[in-house]
């Protein structure tokens, strides 16, 4: 469901270190519906924002096992049951010779699956009111933009603004965009 308007507060920082320190203070102040837009990944940001580790590795693990089982199953079934051929008296279930394809299938499922799931997860793992995509914030250029959504339980405009200013943020302003998260 697309909200009819996106309200919140923006403020930006100029270096990753400032952004990290600010994120930790926003977290400690008890805000939950906040996010950082950064031009490149900032190491330590997950901890500073109080996020858990990504669960993508579990997806990779499950898909890798699926790939192994699929490839072994297909080869075993085709070479032993569906079309057994006698190659120089060798066993039909020549499992060592099935390993290369099994390995490739594992990588195929795990890698492509993880990439697709990570992109979808990144889009879906969000706060009730994600930051609007505003070009002028420069979040893909050189700004580390803090966004606190108006949906946050602690939202109190004057208090939030004073707090964000106290973090040393630049360009602090309220945002009210109709049409939700759009370019």
């Amino acid at each position: 469901m697309m909200p009819t308007s996106t309200r919140g507060l923006l403020g930006h920082f100029c270096t990753p270190d400032e952004a990290l320190a600010a994120a930790a203070r926003v977290r400690d102040a008890g805000y939950r519906h906040f996010d950082f837009l950064t031009p490149f990944p900032v190491h330590g940001m997950e901890e500073a924002m109080g996020q858990k580790r990504s669960w993508i590795p579990w997806v990779t693990g499950v898909l890798a096992i699926c790939g192994i089982l699929f490839a072994l199953g297909l080869q075993y079934w085709a070479m032993v049951f569906d079309w057994p051929l006698n190659h120089g008296g060798k066993p039909f279930n020549a499992w060592p010779a099935f390993i290369p394809i099994t390995f490739e299938a594992m990588v195929f499922w795990a890698a492509l699956g993880s990439a697709v799931v990570a992109v979808i997860a990144g889009k879906r793992d969000t706060i009730p009111q994600p930051p609007p995509l505003l070009v002028e914030t420069g979040a893909t250029v050189d700004r580390f933009v803090l966004w606190i959504s108006a949906t946050d339980p602690r939202w109190e405009p004057a208090e939030v603004e004073a707090f964000v200013r106290s973090l040393g943020a630049n360009g602090v302003r309220f945002v009210d965009v109709s049409g939700g998260n759009d370019a």
Partner: peptide, 15 residues
Amino acid sequence: GWTGSQRMWRHYEAA
């Protein structure tokens, strides 16, 4: 629709 949100980077970096 990449925004550079930390919530995107988190999964992106893992992947």
